[in-house]
């Protein structure tokens, strides 16, 4: 058997390193933001399961496509009168 590469004791990991793991390839649909319509209510931010809504200075500026799985929750929770997010089919 070849030498095992050294691993941290008992399988310890540095916290938060899943940030480096890509789950964007799971996506079948892609959220698209209409910045002109967005009112920065940030409901999409609080309800996103993948911590993908990028907020800068209190403004919704886009999506982290490394992690976005295309679930469409952001589109669904975007207030009906605003509808700044829509889902489009991911190009293969």
């Amino acid at each position: 058997m070849k030498e095992c590469k050294p691993l941290a004791l008992g399988g310890d990991l540095p916290g938060g390193c899943a940030d480096d793991y890509e789950t964007g390839s799971w996506r079948k649909f892609l959220p698209v933001l209409d910045r002109d319509k967005c009112i920065d209510c940030l409901i999409c931010w609080v309800q996103c399961p993948d911590s993908c809504i990028i907020v800068e200075d209190g403004k919704m500026v886009g999506f982290n496509f490394e992690h976005c799985k295309g679930c469409g929750i952001c589109d669904e929770v975007c207030p009906p009168k605003v509808k700044a997010i829509r889902m489009i089919e991911e190009e293969s």
């Binding site: 008992g10 399988g11 310890d12 990991l13 916290g15």
Partner: peptide
Amino acid sequence: NPLTLGATA
């Protein structure tokens, strides 16, 4: 230095 212990392997 947050660690994760008892991870899935």
